[in-house]
Structure formats: structure tokens, C-alpha cells
Design a protein around this nucleic acid. Structure first.
Length: 467
RNA sequence: GGCUAGGUGGCAGAAUGGUUAUGCAGCGGCCUGCAAAGCCGUCUAUGCCGGUUCGAUUCCGACCCUAGCCUCCA
């Protein structure tokens, strides 16, 4: 039984797909106005992990993650650069795919772009007006009338009075209520616009997700996810829109991932404390390091980004790859579900407890190290290695050959080449056979200073890895 | 001010009404020419004050602190 924390109720509930055996899930993707930052990466990796795990448990998954390509930020950036907004969005959508591929995120079944769903948005807005939930304001914008939707605030636990008491909502003269939000913005010169019954204009951000999710998954589906900061107002507004237009149910379970902070503060442009995923990927040994780090803490809690944390993630992964090292894989990985596999599933079944699942992997590594030690059970070791790889794959890690992992370097260009290293090792082997220990140690130290660690194995074999 | 989440050992991070995850780091041992890796052992913890209980880190209440949302934001 898979249990998931539902933001709507604040409690864990059993996942019972509306259509038996088939989970339909949607997550709000990124706005492609720039390279996405590591905070975005957390959300993308988290929901990729969710979809991978549900598939691992034998469920069919239809995962839809949108691309927001109609947005103020895109329009402004494109204008500053003197580029067409479509071209600008396409450029960063392509970059996003490159980085996501590196991070091991599978492509969702559908990746709708907002600009291709204008008709669906207009239809939904029309329905909202017909149902009495929306109105055209004096400035031409079409607004959602939050008073009319009784459950408004249910997801975020906010009441309209409390929101107003906040007194931080700017008063817009065109709105009946400061909390009303825009569905359709009337056209401004030089901005993208589409014709509509309410005049030329473009969609508001919130209506995009309602229209795309309804079109691709139907109005009633299983899981809707996104970052915690989208809970209010974005997801609250999505509920108001979809339920207001269709009169039916929307997502059964709402999932929100916590923030990735820097120095215990949320990343933000104003504080200048954010990193793009692209620049982080360039600094680490392998993309799996970032992915492993992002999954090393429970998805709902906050976590802190720091180089030290990445180093710890690399160390953890090192241990797992070390266990897999030199264990022959014959005809693909052998997988025989054991207690560890059951423990892994039990941890993941409980609201995707990836830290505990990783602990199971570490336990498996220990078992594997024992089995493959001199005098151990080589056949058992192969089974364990296959299992470790299979479970790692569910989290999207341990996907490369151990040798590749150990030869990878955080700084791809600097340092010694593989051939250089082999040459020094040969020189050291000669010194060793002459029992010239000072020379042997000198070479080892020299390599260590270049970031290469040597390991003498039984039988006079020396292997190396980049630290 | 309103609402929400959280405060666990040197670091990160789970779990749990009583038997002290996991990884990194440290210490001791085995192994090694010496190392590295591995294995074995081992030291550090549950913000503060009350309450319930045979017993609370875990449940309840107050307090302190932190973060987030209330405005675009994963």
C-alpha cells in the first residue's frame, strides 16, 4: 500500500488510482526564461522519482509536466535581448531538456506548452464566466471572482478575511476584490496576443495549468505536484478555476516539495543566492551527485545547498559504487528480490521516504562487501550487486559502470590523463617489486596531490580513482 | 499581524511511547611493506518548561528559536 501525504488534508492517504492500475499525475514545470536553478531541479527530480517509483511498483503512469512559455519574464527577457519571445522560450526549453537528461529525469508522457493550449484556456474562461465565477473588469482584463468560489483557500488553509488582513495585497482598481486574479490580460503593445471574445490578449499564468492538465489528464486525476511556493496562490487558483469551470473534482492528492535553501534562506534573485543547475553540474564529478543529494533528504522537508553537502553526497555514492566495483555482471543485472528489496519498498511506500531507502541501499552495500571479500560467496555477491543496481535505478542513480564513476573528475580538463596515470603506476610497480618503498610512496603521493588515489589489490594489481 | 512547517549526536539525515537508522567525519582493531578500500568495534543527540504515563525524543499544553506563505517564484 502506497501512502502519500496530501497537502489538501494534511494527512497521509492511500494511493488508490481513479482508474485502477493507472496513475495520472501532473506537475507544474518551469517557466523557460533562463536556465533553471537547483531549487527547480529539486522539484523536477522529486517528481521524476515519484513517477519512477510508481512504475517500479507495477503501476502504469501518465505523467504530464508543463512548460510555461507565455509569461511576463519571458517576454521581458526576449525584448531585452531583441529576440522573438517564442525563440527565447524554445532556447531555454531545449537547455532545460539537456540538463534534465543529465540529471536522469525521464521525459514525461506529455510536456504541454502553454502557447499551444490557448483555445482550451479560452474555453475554460468562457465557462467560468457562464458559471458566474469570472467577470471582465473595466480595464478589459478578465478576472476570477474569488468570492463566488466557496471553498477558496481550502488547499492553503487560508481564509479570505485572513488574506485581506495581511494588507500586503496591492489594490488594483479594476478588481472587485484585491484577491481576484487575472484569467485573461488584455493586449499591450508589443506583447504576444491572441484574439478572444474579450478582446486581444494573453492568458494569466494560473489558467494555463488548469487548461493543460484538464486537456491531457481529464478534470479528475490522481496526483498534482509542485513546489511549496506554488501552493498559494497558484494551486489554490487552479482548484478554483478547474472546479469552477467543470463543477467536478480535480486532483485527488496534492504533493508539495520543500525548498532548497542556501544558508537557510530561500534562494532568490534579490538576495543573489541562487545557482543554476547548469553551473552546478559543471562543478561536480557526475550529475548523479546532485541527484543523490536532492534525494538524500525527505522531499517535503527543507534542505540546505552547500558544497559540503554535495561532497557528502559524493562520498555516499562512492561507497555504493565501491561495493559494485569489480563484481562481474553477466548478461545484464541479476535481480532477485530479497529482504532489502522489501525494506526499500516499505520505505518508499511510506510517502516516498528516500533517505530511508538510501539507508537500505547502504546496508545492501555492506552485505555485498562482505560477500565479495576473500572467501566470500561470489554468486551471492553478483545477486546482491544486481539488486543494488536495480534499486538504485528506481531512484535514478547507480546507472553507470563503477569504473566510469571512479575515473570521473569534478574538473574534467585539469589534471593527469588516464595514460599519464597508468605510466606512473607502472613506474611505481617497478619500484615496488624492487622493494624501493620510498620511491613507490613518492609516486603515490605525487598522484594523490593530483587528485588520484591508488589502491593496491591482491595479486599485485593497482587500481586508481579520482577523488 | 494571520496561516503553515520545523527544531535529533561534529556534519547531514531517518525513525520511534521502552530494545539507541544510515552516510560522512573521529577514535581503536584486523588487513596492508606502508597506505587506500573493506570489515569489526567505539564516542558525541533528541530547543526550553510543565502535564499524561510504570516509562516520552516520540502524546498534550505553554514558551523560545528558525524557515516559508500572505506579492512573481519549484
Amino acid at each position: 500500500m502506497i501512502r502519500i501525504h496530501n497537502s489538501l488534508t494534511g494527512e497521509k492517504q492511500e494511493l488508490r488510482p481513479i482508474e485502477p492500475g493507472h496513475v495520472r499525475m501532473y506537475s507544474c514545470g518551469v517557466t523557460v526564461y533562463d536556465y533553471f536553478h537547483v531549487g527547480n531541479a529539486r522539484m523536477l527530480v522529486v517528481f521524476d522519482m515519484v513517477s519512477r517509483y510508481l512504475r517500479h511498483r507495477g503501476l502504469r503512469v501518465t505523467y504530464v509536466r508543463n512548460i510555461t512559455d507565455v509569461d511576463d519574464k519571458i517576454i521581458n527577457r526576449a525584448r531585452e535581448a531583441g529576440v522573438d519571445w517564442r525563440e527565447w522560450a524554445a532556447r531555454y526549453a531545449a537547455a532545460m531538456h539537456e540538463d534534465l537528461d543529465k540529471l536522469g529525469c525521464l521525459r514525461p508522457e506529455k510536456e504541454p506548452k502553454a502557447s499551444e493550449y490557448i483555445d482550451e484556456m479560452l474555453a475554460m474562461i468562457g465557462q467560468l464566466i457562464a458559471n458566474g465565477y469570472a467577470y471582465q473588469a473595466t480595464n478589459g482584463d478578465v478576472m476570477y471572482d474569488v468570492h463566488k468560489f466557496a471553498p477558496y483557500g481550502q488547499l492553503s488553509g487560508k481564509r479570505l478575511e485572513d488574506l485581506r488582513a495581511g494588507a500586503r495585497v496591492g489594490v488594483d482598481g479594476a478588481k472587485r476584490d484585491p484577491l481576484d486574479f487575472v484569467l485573461w490580460k488584455s493586449a499591450k503593445p508589443g506583447e504576444p496576443a491572441w484574439p478572444s471574445s474579450w478582446g486581444e490578449g494573453r492568458p494569466g499564468w494560473h489558467i494555463e495549468c488548469s487548461a493543460m492538465s484538464t486537456k491531457e489528464l481529464g478534470q479528475h486525476f490522481d496526483i498534482h505536484g509542485g513546489g511549496l511556493d506554488l501552493k498559494f496562490p497558484h494551486h489554490e487558483n487552479e482548484i478554483a478555476q478547474t472546479c469552477g469551470a467543470t463543477g467536478g473534482k480535480f486532483a485527488e492528492i496534492w504533493m508539495h516539495n520543500g525548498f532548497l535553501n542556501i544558508d537557510n534562506e530561500k534562494m532568490s534573485k534579490s538576495l543573489g543566492n541562487f545557482f543554476t543547475t547548469r553551473e552546478v553540474l559543471a562543478k561536480i564529478k557526475h550529475p548523479e551527485v546532485l541527484r543523490f543529494f536532492l534525494l538524500s533528504s525527505h522531499y517535503r522537508g527543507p534542505m540546505n545547498y552547500s558544497p559540503d553537502q554535495l561532497a557528502q553526497a559524493e562520498a555516499g555514492l562512492n561507497r555504493l559504487y565501491t561495493a559494485l566495483r569489480d563484481v562481474p555482471v553477466v548478461g545484464g543485472d541479476l535481480y532477485s528480490p530479497t529482504q532489502a528489496a522489501k525494506d526499500f519498498d516499505a520505505a518508499m511506500d511510506d510517502d516516498f521516504n528516500t533517505p530511508e531507502a538510501i539507508a537500505v541501499l547502504q546496508g545492501l552495500a555492506r552485505e555485498l562487501n562482505t560477500a565479495r571479500a576473500a572467501g566470500g560467496d561470489a554468486h551471492h555477491a553478483r545477486l546482491l550487486a544486481g539488486e543494488l543496481r536495480a534499486l538504485g535505478a528506481v531512484l535514478g542513480v547507480l546507472k553507470i559502470a563503477p569504473e566510469e564513476w571512479f575515473r570521473a573528475s569534478a574538473s574534467a580538463t585539469a589534471g593527469l590523463s588516464d595514460a599519464d596515470i597508468d605510466e606512473r603506476i607502472a613506474a611505481r610497480a617497478a619500484a615496488k617489486s624492487a622493494k624501493n618503498w620510498p620511491e613507490s610512496d613518492r609516486i603515490r603521493k605525487e598522484l594523490a596531490e593530483a587528485g588520484v588515489i591508488l589502491e593496491d589489490k591482491p595479486g599485485g594489481v593497482t587500481t586508481w580513482r579520482r577523488g
